[in-house]
Amino acid sequence: MNPIHLMQRIRLGEDSTLELKQIHIKDAGKNLEPHPDGLSDEFTC
């Protein structure tokens, strides 16, 4: 999938084959939310 096609999919929003996630990162590089363990639970095949 090329970057243009990916951006088009993101603009259309979630559907039965795409689930979007967001992560917040501090200046020091540590993520604030979601917790890394919780985020890894979301990645499934």
Rank of each mutant, 00 (worst) to 15 (best):
residue 1 M to H: 11
residue 1 M to S: 13
residue 1 M to W: 13
residue 1 M to L: 14
residue 1 M to K: 10
residue 2 N to S: 12
residue 2 N to A: 08
residue 2 N to M: 09
residue 3 P to Q: 13
residue 3 P to Y: 12
residue 4 I to S: 04
residue 4 I to K: 04
residue 5 H to C: 09
residue 5 H to Y: 11
residue 6 L to S: 05
residue 7 M to P: 00
residue 8 Q to D: 13
residue 9 R to Y: 00
residue 10 I to Y: 02
residue 11 R to S: 11
residue 11 R to W: 07
residue 11 R to Q: 12
residue 12 L to Q: 15
residue 12 L to R: 15
residue 13 G to I: 06
residue 13 G to R: 05
residue 13 G to K: 05
residue 13 G to D: 06
residue 14 E to H: 01
residue 14 E to Y: 01
residue 14 E to P: 00
residue 15 D to R: 01
residue 15 D to Y: 01
residue 16 S to W: 09
residue 17 T to S: 08
residue 17 T to F: 02
residue 17 T to D: 08
residue 18 L to D: 03
residue 18 L to G: 03
residue 18 L to A: 05
residue 19 E to I: 07
residue 19 E to G: 05
residue 19 E to Y: 03
residue 19 E to C: 05
residue 19 E to Q: 12
residue 20 L to Q: 08
residue 20 L to N: 03
residue 20 L to A: 07
residue 20 L to M: 13
residue 20 L to I: 15
residue 20 L to W: 04
residue 21 K to E: 10
residue 21 K to G: 09
residue 22 Q to D: 14
residue 23 I to G: 10
residue 23 I to E: 11
residue 23 I to Q: 10
residue 23 I to H: 04
residue 23 I to R: 09
residue 24 H to W: 13
residue 24 H to L: 15
residue 24 H to G: 07
residue 24 H to C: 13
residue 25 I to P: 01
residue 25 I to S: 02
residue 26 K to S: 04
residue 26 K to D: 06
residue 26 K to I: 02
residue 26 K to P: 00
residue 27 D to H: 11
residue 27 D to S: 11
residue 27 D to P: 04
residue 27 D to E: 14
residue 28 A to Q: 14
residue 28 A to K: 12
residue 29 G to V: 09
residue 29 G to T: 12
residue 30 K to I: 15
residue 30 K to H: 13
residue 30 K to N: 14
residue 30 K to E: 15
residue 31 N to M: 15
residue 32 L to G: 05
residue 32 L to H: 07
residue 32 L to W: 11
residue 33 E to T: 12
residue 33 E to P: 00
residue 34 P to F: 05
residue 34 P to T: 07
residue 34 P to D: 08
residue 34 P to Y: 07
residue 35 H to F: 06
residue 35 H to I: 10
residue 35 H to N: 09
residue 35 H to V: 10
residue 35 H to T: 10
residue 36 P to Q: 07
residue 36 P to Y: 03
residue 36 P to T: 10
residue 36 P to I: 07
residue 36 P to W: 02
residue 37 D to L: 08
residue 37 D to C: 03
residue 37 D to F: 03
residue 37 D to P: 00
residue 37 D to K: 04
residue 37 D to G: 02
residue 38 G to I: 06
residue 39 L to F: 04
residue 39 L to V: 01
residue 39 L to Y: 02
residue 40 S to M: 06
residue 40 S to K: 04
residue 40 S to E: 06
residue 40 S to P: 00
residue 40 S to T: 07
residue 41 D to L: 07
residue 41 D to Y: 03
residue 41 D to G: 01
residue 42 E to P: 00
residue 42 E to A: 02
residue 42 E to D: 04
residue 42 E to Y: 01
residue 42 E to V: 02
residue 43 F to P: 00
residue 43 F to H: 01
residue 43 F to T: 02
residue 43 F to R: 00
residue 44 T to H: 05
residue 44 T to S: 05
residue 44 T to C: 06
residue 44 T to A: 06
residue 45 C to Y: 13
residue 45 C to Q: 12
residue 45 C to E: 14
